[in-house]
Amino acid sequence: MKHENQTKRKAVVLLSGGLDSATTLAIARDQGFQCYALSIDYGQRHYAELNAAQKVAQSLGSHAHQTIKVDLTLFGGSALTDQSIEVPILEESPNIPVTYVPARNTIMLSLALAWAETLDCQDIFVGVNAIDYSGYPDCRAEYIQAFENMANLATKAGIEGRRLTIHAPLILLSKKEIIHMGLALGVDYGLTVSCYQADKTGRACGGCDSCRIRKRGFKAANITDPTAYKTN
């Protein structure tokens, strides 16, 4: 008789260490997948999220957790990869913000795709959201569908009929709904870090776009926010 883990379908789950990716990992686990968590060290100024990812992966029982280094500071072009660009604080804008990292999700999904193929895995989970989000173009449903189409055209697995699926289970959920779902699945949001410029201990700034969206989500969910903030 096979061990239980050998009978489960495998899934690669992109895990940043933030609220959404932690919830996505919990969803994949709840759906019965053997989860291979993948974090990307791309030179982000909020490095604390990678420490958080390790804790989340362990807390939610990932079968494996890998961190890949890709230095996007060589290109810059974003407040998250260029120290000369300040992270906006308490600023709302209808435009795509300077915290957008060019091609970030394409790079991350490509790396997840490469690992999935080596694992003979047909499922990739990503925690993008197009409701309570910052307006990034690579968080939209049409982008995820386009990447899935590309993946099935450009891989050995896809050509041989082992169709790859990109799961984005949070894409049409509000932050309130995401938080309620995660809590029901056992996510400890106190382990997660969402802030764009959290300090080394993981304390959040409280004023960046990601912090504001997170705060509003917990308030709407009527759940005490477990985040450690530098200021209130």
Rank of each mutant, 00 (worst) to 15 (best):
K8I: 10
R9G: 11
R9Q: 12
R9D: 07
R9H: 12
K10H: 02
A11S: 03
A11I: 08
A11Q: 07
V12W: 06
V12L: 03
V13W: 02
V13F: 04
V13G: 06
L14G: 07
L15F: 04
L15V: 00
S16W: 05
G17M: 02
G18E: 01
L19E: 08
L19P: 06
L19M: 14
D20N: 11
D20S: 06
D20V: 01
S21F: 00
A22N: 02
A22M: 05
T23P: 00
T24M: 06
T24Q: 08
L25N: 09
A26W: 04
A26E: 14
A26K: 03
I27G: 03
A28Q: 12
A28P: 14
R29S: 09
D30N: 15
D30M: 11
Q31E: 14
Q31K: 13
G32N: 14
G32W: 15
C35G: 05
C35S: 12
C35Q: 10
Y36R: 07
Y36H: 05
A37R: 10
A37G: 14
L38A: 05
L38N: 05
L38R: 03
S39R: 00
S39Y: 00
I40A: 11
I40M: 15
Y42M: 04
Y42H: 11
G43E: 00
G43R: 00
G43V: 00
G43C: 04
Q44T: 06
Q44N: 09
Q44H: 10
R45G: 04
H46D: 08
H46R: 11
H46I: 05
Y47G: 11
A48V: 00
E49S: 03
E49W: 07
L50I: 09
N51P: 15
A52R: 00
A52H: 01
A52V: 00
A52Y: 00
Q54S: 07
Q54I: 02
V56R: 07
V56A: 02
A57D: 10
A57R: 06
Q58M: 08
Q58V: 14
Q58S: 15
S59F: 13
L60R: 09
G61R: 10
G61W: 12
G61Y: 14
G61E: 13
S62A: 11
S62C: 11
A64Q: 13
A64H: 09
A64C: 04
A64E: 10
A64P: 05
H65L: 01
H65D: 04
H65M: 02
Q66P: 13
Q66M: 08
T67E: 06
T67P: 04
T67H: 02
I68G: 03
K69V: 07
K69F: 12
K69M: 15
V70C: 05
V70Q: 13
L72W: 00
L72V: 08
L72K: 10
L72C: 11
L72I: 13
L74F: 13
L74S: 14
F75Y: 12
F75M: 12
G76K: 03
G77Y: 01
G77M: 03
G77L: 05
G77A: 02
G77C: 09
S78W: 07
A79V: 15
L80E: 06
T81D: 05
T81Q: 03
T81Y: 14
D82A: 11
Q83D: 14
Q83L: 13
Q83V: 09
